[in-house]
């Protein structure tokens, strides 16, 4: 996975199968940066995520809680239909913004 920081925005780009095993690594790497205190927006790039289960929902939820606490926001783009369905099922789509691409995600307030 890679993480890009652009000003106050952080783009997390997981690769492959986002399960409980992989979730632990994503969480650790992302929070190391978030906890420095400069990030106001977390963007998930799901373009290269081929599989996801509820552990992925947990990862998004956890970063949402961190952002909510500082009045920041969470967006996602590149999600396939299955991932979108999971995000909607969990109710997360009410608090995070699903965007069509990276540019739009960066524009979200």
């Amino acid at each position: 996975m890679t993480i890009d920081v652009m000003g106050e925005a952080m783009i997390i780009r997981p690769k492959g199968e986002l399960d409980h095993h992989y979730a632990q690594e994503i969480r650790e790497k992302a929070d190391k940066i978030i906890l420095k205190g400069e990030i106001r927006k977390v963007i998930f790039d799901f373009t290269n995520v081929l599989f996801m289960d509820s552990s992925g929902i947990g990862v998004i939820m956890g970063r949402y809680r961190l952002m909510e606490a500082i009045k920041g926001s969470v967006c996602a783009f590149g999600a396939n239909e299955r991932i979108k369905r999971l995000i909607k099922m969990s109710g997360l789509s009410r608090v995070i913004t699903l965007c069509p691409n990276q540019q739009k995600a960066l524009e979200v307030k």
Binding site: D53, S54, S55, G58, V59, M61, G62, L86, M89
Partner: peptide, 9 residues
């Protein structure tokens, strides 16, 4: 950070 969605899925 479990979401409680496993059985529902």
């Amino acid at each position: 950070e479990r979401s409680g969605m496993g059985f529902t899925v």
